[in-house]
Design a protein around this nucleic acid. Sequence first.
DNA 1: TAGATTGTTAATCGATTAACAATC
DNA 2: TAGATTGTTAATCGATTAACAATC
Lengths: 221, 221
Amino acid sequence: MDMSERVPDAVARRLPWYYRTLRELEAEETQRVSSQALGRRMGLTASQIRQDINYFGGFGQQGYGYSVPRLRQCIEQILGLDRTHRIAIVGVGNIGSAIARYPEFHRDGFEMVALFDASEARIGNKIEGLEILPADQLKQWLLQNPVQILVLATPSEYAQEIAAEAVSAGVRAIWNFTPVDLSLPDTVEVSNVHLSDSLMALTFRLHEREIHSRSEKWIRE
Amino acid sequence: MDMSERVPDAVARRLPWYYRTLRELEAEETQRVSSQALGRRMGLTASQIRQDINYFGGFGQQGYGYSVPRLRQCIEQILGLDRTHRIAIVGVGNIGSAIARYPEFHRDGFEMVALFDASEARIGNKIEGLEILPADQLKQWLLQNPVQILVLATPSEYAQEIAAEAVSAGVRAIWNFTPVDLSLPDTVEVSNVHLSDSLMALTFRLHEREIHSRSEKWIRE
DNA sequence: TAGATTGTTAATCGATTAACAATC
DNA sequence: TAGATTGTTAATCGATTAACAATC
């Protein structure tokens, strides 16, 4: 498993997709899969799948294909899901609390360990048995209770400040739900869920399509 | 504005980002911006920004740069945000109800018009003044009240079925929060928010980094 | 006018696809 | 062994970057 160079983003983005698909195949009790069959299922070329998988090593077998459980397990390890990840959430508004209540995470080794919010009305309340702590205790708490991942779901105006604070308390991975492009040392990994970007990408394609069909009509008439 | 070819995904993904940044600049009352200045701010090359913008036409002015309000407005139009988009949500669990309560959408012309759920316990309840309707009335309702966008936030096992139903009732854009790769006619636009994929991309990079630093040590010692 | 910066073409880089020898 | 399918190298394609003439 040679990891001497940073894996291209294009490949990294497909890894969870492979993982998800392999889990489906496993649930269907499929034992083996060829790059061609997997490609057909995912809408990728067989070549790309072999290329991607080989980035991490030869998990297949010539003339046979890939063992579904084995490949699933390998990708699970590559994704780091064989470990437990402790997660804290800052900002328990709509999205923050939805994440706090999301049960599926547990299955993949994620453990919600603390919730923080700045609103007096929320502090002290419980979500899934976990008490909401005052946001101004975040740094202190993190120093004593390290987490692997911080979920950032505060109002935009506090996002940068709180992220920087968390990083100074040792956080090295942020799952960012605010529409803010965080500026942090590049020793910190950030995964953005820019919800409105994703919604706008949808309206863009919808709009683009309408223009297309209009101009098609134009040509026909 | 030549749109004879489909805009590459790479460009489409950056459009909402440009829009967001231009809005920030506008809020800071910046009147003009050069591709270089915008590039520095966003971490892109000036060249790429000019290339991207020119995909849609010459909105700049030689020797001056781009007018921030004008460019913002142009991209707003390109994204289709000058129109109103009616949205319905199916599945008002954690994520569905978080989306239903998200206030920011209104600003960009999105209007939440209906909520659906299959659970007896939820039907009849209200979120933001909107009553939750039985999911089995979805198709009927959509036929009478067309929406531009359907938010899909049901349990995975119903996602494909409900999406197909909505499409047969005229829906042409789906904002998909389920971890399912929907299979729909390509006349339908889908924007996926695969939350666990995004979380796993984070653990992958975190893990990858650890391997790096370990092997660095290895070399040093 | 001179300086600045775009719009656009050409060069480079990286990612995807094709091809095929290795091998199970 | 013969057939199938991987692992891997080479060819192609597309996206990014560089360069520069056009022009405000």
